[in-house]
Simulated assay, not measured.
Amino acid sequence: MRITTELGDITRVDVDAIVNAANSSLLGGGGVDGAIHAAAGPRLLDACRKLRRNGLPVGDAVATPAFELPARWVIHTVGPNRTRGQTDPALLASCFTRSLDVAAELGARTVAFPAVGAGAYGWSPDDAAAAAVGAVRAWPGDGVEHVRFVLFGERLLTAFDTALGDNAP
């Protein structure tokens, strides 16, 4: 699997699936979640309402159509909120592996990830990058050919580039 990093807006990338750093309600929020909901249009919120039942557990993932986005699907995952005491890096890594599992089930070959957990949920860029890169590299599935980490700031890009270099085979 090819893994790349780039500075950019995840709502504008042309991939099969983008990953949304969602909250457990799946009803939109701030940051990446708010940007994805705004760019996808109101049908995304309607699709999320149908899925949410009791909310999505931390570390799990679920897909919806992407509607107005250039991607075909949005894969929603809920990161652990470090500011609320959810400090287990295995839960953060699970966001990436479960998202890749869902992508493979959909037949997605290209997937774009944001820095799940590195915003309001309080994970440092370095810790988020280490968990993300480690999880993607260790993912045992197949079918996904290219993972793109689409990051919104230079500090995140540097952290992900460093993690990719530190984890080189």
Rank of each mutant, 00 (worst) to 15 (best):
A163I: 08
L51Y: 09
V19P: 12
G119N: 07
A120M: 12
P89Q: 06
L100P: 02
I18Y: 08
G30I: 12
E154I: 10
R155H: 05
P89D: 03
E105Q: 14
T5C: 14
L156I: 01
Q86P: 05
E105T: 15
S24F: 00
S94D: 07
T64N: 07
E68I: 00
H76A: 08
V150C: 14
L56G: 04
D88N: 14
A63D: 10
F96Q: 14
A71R: 08
A21C: 09
S99M: 04
A129K: 01
D161T: 14
G55Q: 07
G119E: 10
I36G: 12
L156Y: 02
G143Q: 05
A129G: 11
A115Q: 10
G30N: 11
F149H: 13
A168Q: 11
A71H: 11
M1Q: 04
T77E: 04
V58H: 00
V15T: 11
L164W: 00
A93G: 15
A132Y: 08
A17D: 11
C48D: 06
P169N: 04
P65W: 01
D33W: 13
P57N: 05
D46V: 14
G134I: 09
A104L: 07
V62W: 02
S94G: 06
V62D: 12
A35M: 03
L45Q: 05
G143S: 08
L7D: 01
A40F: 03
T97A: 02
P70K: 00
V19F: 12
G34C: 10
S94I: 02
D14P: 00
G119M: 06
G8W: 13
V15I: 09
A63V: 08
L157A: 12
D166E: 15
G31E: 09
K50T: 13
G31K: 03
A22R: 07
P169G: 10
L7S: 09
A35Y: 03
G119S: 09
G165R: 15
A115Y: 14
P42L: 07
G8M: 10
T83K: 00
A93C: 10
